[in-house]
Computed example of a mutant assay.
Amino acid sequence: MNDGEVLAGGVANAGSIIRIGDEVRRPASAQTELVFSLLEHVRSKGFTGVPEPLGRDAQGRERLRFIPGEVAIPPFPRWSLSPGLLASVARLLRAFHDAVADFVPPANARWNTELAHPAGGQIIGHNDACVENVIVRGGRAAALIDFEFAAPTHPLHDLAVLARHWVPLETPEDAARDGRSGLDVAARFRIVADVYGIPFGAKREEFLDHVVAGIHRSGPFVLARIARGEQAFIDMWERSGGHDRIARRIAWIDSIRSELSMALNTA
């Protein structure tokens, strides 16, 4: 039975993330202790844009300090589409990457790598910096939440995930379905690269490579959970258009790749 306020957002843990006073309780996982050590490390480096871990409760759930603010969920409100907010999200992820750069996990660490870059990478990234996983205060990104997919990854893969969700990198038809019509995709994509601090030239093309490759790989994560019978993912798949939406997104990103490259590299 829920013993507090159910917090909205998310798919995998929908309905099971509870606020009790100034704490959030959420289901624990095999990665809970790893994630707690990660959060403690970046907070020790002065980065407070992540929840403070508080241990476990009597039911074995994770206990985290509640972070006040707003979280945008579909259909996305107009305030969540501002260029200033987009820039602040990219800035927040860069600050997290800087803080996590010297984090050394245990040699036997077993992360959930479902959303990480297939080849791993040199940092432990968030890997799921979607709109619903960012706390917003005063029109600016205040914190990243939901670190269950944190794992070794490439920093530009982590940023590519952010761009896919926040620009968003969707066909106009599908973006409109979530309340995000009429946005200048190329300009917003450029904001992400500029604010994160990607140098002009080869590094920006590498970032674009990560974006395109990630979109081409999309689908298996959700399909695996559908195969396990997870109803929340079945519902999301059907609601979002399933295979047809993925096929549209792949064809669309390939068709505008040159436009995005020009936007990234025009001084």
Rank of each mutant, 00 (worst) to 15 (best):
V35W: 04
V35C: 06
V35P: 07
V35T: 13
F36C: 05
F36H: 14
F36P: 05
F36Y: 09
S37L: 02
S37G: 05
S37E: 13
S37N: 09
S37R: 14
S37V: 01
L38T: 06
L38D: 06
L38Q: 08
E40F: 04
H41F: 14
V42H: 08
V42D: 06
S44W: 12
K45L: 15
K45D: 10
G46S: 12
G46V: 13
G46C: 12
G46W: 14
F47I: 13
F47K: 08
T48K: 11
T48S: 10
T48D: 11
G49R: 12
G49D: 09
V50I: 11
V50C: 13
V50A: 15
P51F: 08
P51A: 11
P51G: 14
P53K: 07
L54H: 07
G55H: 11
R56K: 13
Q59M: 13
G60M: 13
E62P: 06
L64M: 09
F66A: 08
I67W: 06
I67D: 04
A72H: 02
I73K: 02
I73F: 01
P75C: 00
F76N: 00
P77N: 04
W79A: 03
S80P: 03
L81G: 01
S82V: 01
P83Q: 00
G84M: 01
L85P: 01
L85F: 04
L86V: 00
L86F: 02
A87N: 01
S88P: 01
S88I: 02
S88M: 02
V89P: 00
V89H: 02
A90C: 00
R91M: 03
L93D: 03
L93H: 06
L93E: 05
R94S: 04
R94A: 07
A95G: 09
A95V: 02
H97A: 03
V100W: 11
V100Q: 05
A101P: 04
A101I: 07
F103S: 05
P106D: 09
N108H: 12
R110N: 10
R110W: 03
N112G: 05
N112D: 15
T113W: 06
T113P: 12
T113D: 14
E114G: 04
L115P: 10
A116H: 09
P118E: 12
G120D: 13
I124P: 15
G125D: 14
H126T: 10
H126R: 10
N127I: 12
C130P: 02
C130W: 07
E132I: 01
E132D: 15
E132Q: 15
N133D: 11
V136G: 00
G138T: 07
G138V: 08
G138L: 08
G139L: 08
R140N: 05
L144S: 10
I145L: 06
E148W: 04
E148Y: 14
F149A: 14
A150I: 14
A151K: 14
P152K: 15
P152V: 11
P152E: 15
P152N: 13
P155D: 14
